[in-house]
Design a binder for these strands. Structure first.
Lengths: 142, 142
DNA sequence: AAAGATTGATATCTCAATCTTG
DNA sequence: CAAGATTGAGATATCAATCTTT
């Protein structure tokens, strides 16, 4: 698991950058926005959805804005908050990146697991992911 | 898998830093050195063993040197190469860090998988890891 | 004061360029 | 020139401090 966990992310990231011109973080950011109502989220909610820090999210959205993939809108309801929204170009970019990413995962992971194992693997990893995300932690130093 | 792969590494790293004062990279570096003959490796071989770049390895070893955990020795056989060697302090540090890390993995991963699944999971991940490392890639854009 | 967002300083890491020796 | 190691520049990401609005 440690081997997969350290080697896989950089490889998927390279595939995505080379094949679609997006980093993993940019891809995730566009994806979360695309799933939201009006393709739009508050910066804070976007940060939580992507698992990135608020500051990283600010800088990343600013960069995507410069490339015409998202716009920033001041919230009508709350003057403190900024909302990020994907542009049509952002949505198009995401669609093409998704194809690249799916192929990438297929080639690097799926092709090597026999299909009967896939479900078991997914089930086990899903449970682990759930615990990692909700933090059923007791502190390693307990 | 993507969820585990993105969330797990930072958590293990935090556990290790807080519990043992070593980052994951530092831990891996000390571990690879400890496994080598005389607890010693050429910088290039160390970089390959840890999966880090040569430049990162240089800076990391320099830092560990400053903390008294490794020494740097000029190679007798080849004046181009530098060899890194763990000190007694480095070995002691590694031993205590290993306990922290094992507990960390147990709490965050093992405790959530039922024991009959562990072997299956390990087997599947091992195959994937092998392919990732040897690079049975066809290029995602094919 | 607390929430939302940004900015400044810093850590980790890589690639490309460089220096030295084989 | 190749190989081994280091240095310089830049990307990705975080934490702590700050600014604005609630």
């Amino acid at each position: 698991m440690m081997r997969v966990v350290t080697v896989l992310p950089p490889q998927l990231d390279t595939d995505l950058v080379r094949g679609a011109g997006l980093t993993s973080s940019e891809y995730t950011t566009l994806m979360r926005l695309s799933e939201a109502r009006d393709h739009e989220l508050r910066m804070t909610d976007l940060a939580r959805a992507t698992g990135l820090s608020a500051s990283r999210t600010t800088r990343l959205v600013e960069d995507l804005h410069g490339r015409g993939l998202v716009t920033k809108v001041a919230s009508a309801a709350d003057a403190r908050s900024t909302r990020a929204r994907t542009t049509a170009e952002g949505m198009a970019m995401l669609r093409s990146a998704r194809q690249v990413h799916l192929l990438s995962v297929r080639h690097r992971v799926m092709d090597h697991i026999d299909s009967s194992s896939v479900e078991r693997l997914a089930a086990a990893l899903s449970i682990v992911a759930h615990h990692l995300e909700t933090g059923s932690r007791r502190g390693t130093t307990e």
